[in-house]
Amino acid sequence: MAQQVHYPSNPLQPGPVYFKTPRKCAVFGITDEAFRRQTNYLIDEAVHVGKGCNTIISYIHHYLEANQSQTSHNPLVLHADNCASVDNDNAFPVLFKVAVVHQPFASGQDKNNFMLMYLAWRVARGLNANVELNFMIAGHTKFVPDLFFGLFKRRYRREFVSSLHEVKECMERSSILNKAVLVGSQDGEVLVPTYDWSTFLCRYFSKIKGIKSAHQFTFTNETPGSVMVRQFCNSYESATSLIQYSPLNDEMPEKLTPLGMTRERKQYLYKEIREFCKEEHRDIVCPPVPPAQSHKITARPTTECSVAKDKTSIKKRGQPREPRKNNVTVLFLKSLIEDFIITLIIRFCKIL
Rank of each mutant, 00 (worst) to 15 (best):
N128I: 02
E132I: 03
E132S: 03
E132T: 10
L133G: 03
F135A: 00
M136F: 10
A138L: 01
T141M: 06
T141N: 13
K142S: 06
K142W: 06
K142A: 10
F143C: 06
P145S: 11
L147K: 09
F149W: 13
F149M: 12
F149S: 14
G150R: 00
L151W: 15
L151F: 14
K153A: 14
R154G: 09
R154H: 14
R155H: 13
R155S: 12
Y156T: 10
Y156M: 01
Y156S: 07
Y156F: 15
R157S: 14
R157E: 15
E159Q: 13
F160Y: 12
V161C: 09
S162V: 01
S162H: 10
S163M: 03
S163V: 07
S163Q: 05
S163E: 09
L164Q: 05
L164C: 09
V167H: 11
K168V: 11
E169L: 09
C170T: 15
M171E: 11
S174H: 08
S174N: 14
S175K: 04
S175T: 12
I176T: 13
N178W: 11
N178Q: 07
K179G: 07
K179L: 03
K179P: 05
A180Y: 07
V181Y: 08
V183G: 03
Q186Y: 00
D187K: 04
D187E: 15
D187Q: 09
G188M: 02
G188C: 00
E189N: 13
V190D: 05
L191R: 06
V192E: 03
P193K: 05
T194G: 06
Y195Q: 05
D196F: 01
W197D: 00
T199F: 01
C202W: 00
C202T: 12
C202G: 05
C202A: 11
Y204G: 06
F205V: 09
S206A: 08
S206L: 08
I208E: 07
K209T: 04
K212P: 04
Q216P: 00
F217M: 10
F217Y: 10
F217Q: 05
T218D: 07
F219M: 01
T220R: 03
N221S: 14
E222S: 03
E222K: 08
T223Y: 05
T223S: 09
T223E: 14
G225A: 01
S226W: 06
S226L: 01
S226K: 04
S226R: 06
M228T: 06
V229E: 02
R230K: 11
R230W: 00
R230M: 02
Q231F: 04
Q231E: 14
Q231N: 14
Q231A: 02
C233N: 09
C233T: 13
N234D: 15
N234F: 10
Y236N: 13
E237H: 03
A239P: 01
A239K: 11
S241L: 00
L242Y: 00
I243D: 04
Q244Y: 01
